[in-house]
Computed example of a mutant assay.
Amino acid sequence: MQRVRGVVASRKGAPVELVEIDVPDPGPGEAVVRVQACGVCHTDLHYREGGINDDFPFLLGHEAAGVVESVGPEVHDLAPGDFVILNWRAVCGHCRACDRGEPWYCFATFNATQNMTLADGPDAGRALSPALGIGAFIEKTLVAAGQCTKVDPRARPAAVGLLGCGVMAGLGAAMNTGGVRRGMSVAVIGCGGVGCAAVAGSALAGAGRIIAVDLDERKLARARGLGATHTVDAKVNDPVEAIRDLTGGHGADVVIEAVGRPETWEQAFYARDLAGTVVLVGVPTPDMRIPDIPLIDVFGRGGSLKSSWYGDCLPSRDFPMLVDLYLQGRLDLDAFVSEEIALDDVEAAFTRMQQGEVLRSVVLL
């Protein structure tokens, strides 16, 4: 067992704390990873606010890269010294999705079985709930070996670690779920970290026209830097009309909704071309409902209405490929790193994130 420092949300809405945590030695199928970098994601804030569940205390952080320090028994394709990106979709290999050759839909993903625990105080020994089964705002974390994806060690940890969640979600929403192909028109509604990644993924796939929509000019500027050919300020323009105007009156071939709200999903529905595709990658809250859209419109417009969970990615397939593109200079993951911060600056980073000042703050360890 090792004692390290980590960032914990102890109760709903309370500021996070930097505390001592006990990390057990890896058991069968597990690995301990020395974290080098971890992005500050909206999902971490959702955990702190009780928006995921109430299994406090949470060990936050999940967009991470680092080096394997030790592995437990029954781990055969991972070794100490391997540079890895952590993922929260460790596929089982034998559920009904995996058996039909679609492991990116695995219905039985898994995490480490042992618990990391609080080290001191009246709650010493209390088990922590790691965010998305990872918990990476910590010097060393315990994960299932399947949550470690080996990539080229020349890559910058602060940049490629973001593939662990938000950036992969956006890239995959375009490239995997949306099936964006060369020459297509794409609209992205919401240009935070995930939306900007969807813009970058559309550009990487060769889309001919990429329309970024947001209320914040700062976010639209970032989207332009990542490949948007046109932008729409939703404060002064109706997004549906603007997208249609920019696509010959038809609507976009693929519209990616990266906000997670009923009203923006409805905009996406009507902003797509006939037989086009809508991709929902923004995360809604449990109380939200699909807008009251006439069923004849669903039938008459044809096409596909899809949700994208983690960009429908398969980490073992997608992470090494995307890291290679990054090293070739074809995918600018560095552009997503707005600032590098210390482990004790996570709470302040949440504020900067909520105010739209950053794409990603990244904790360096």
Rank of each mutant, 00 (worst) to 15 (best):
Q267C: 10
L325C: 11
V8H: 13
G81N: 07
Q355V: 01
G135L: 03
L280K: 08
L343K: 02
V337E: 02
D245T: 13
V91T: 15
N111E: 12
H230Q: 13
D297C: 11
V40D: 12
A119C: 08
G356A: 09
Q354L: 15
V16G: 05
G133A: 09
A145M: 09
D245L: 10
L162T: 12
A37N: 01
H230K: 06
G276R: 08
E357G: 01
L280H: 10
Q354R: 15
M184T: 01
A127Q: 05
L162Y: 11
D324H: 13
E30H: 08
V199R: 04
L274I: 12
A169M: 09
E266F: 10
L359Y: 06
E102L: 07
G93F: 02
G51S: 09
R126T: 15
R126L: 13
V358G: 04
V346G: 01
P28F: 08
G183K: 10
E257G: 04
V75M: 05
I290Q: 14
V199T: 04
V68P: 02
F107Y: 06
A108Y: 08
Y310N: 05
S338W: 02
K306V: 00
P153H: 05
R209W: 02
R224L: 14
V71L: 02
M353T: 12
D216H: 13
V180L: 08
L327N: 07
E20D: 15
F269K: 01
H94N: 14
E20Q: 11
E69Q: 13
G227T: 08
R100C: 05
V91R: 10
V232E: 04
G51H: 12
G251E: 04
G190C: 12
A37M: 01
S307N: 07
T351F: 05
I210N: 05
G6W: 05
R360I: 07
V194S: 08
V40A: 13
P103I: 03
S338N: 08
V167R: 05
G201A: 09
F107P: 00
D312C: 09
L314S: 03
P262L: 07
I256G: 07
S316E: 13
A268D: 10
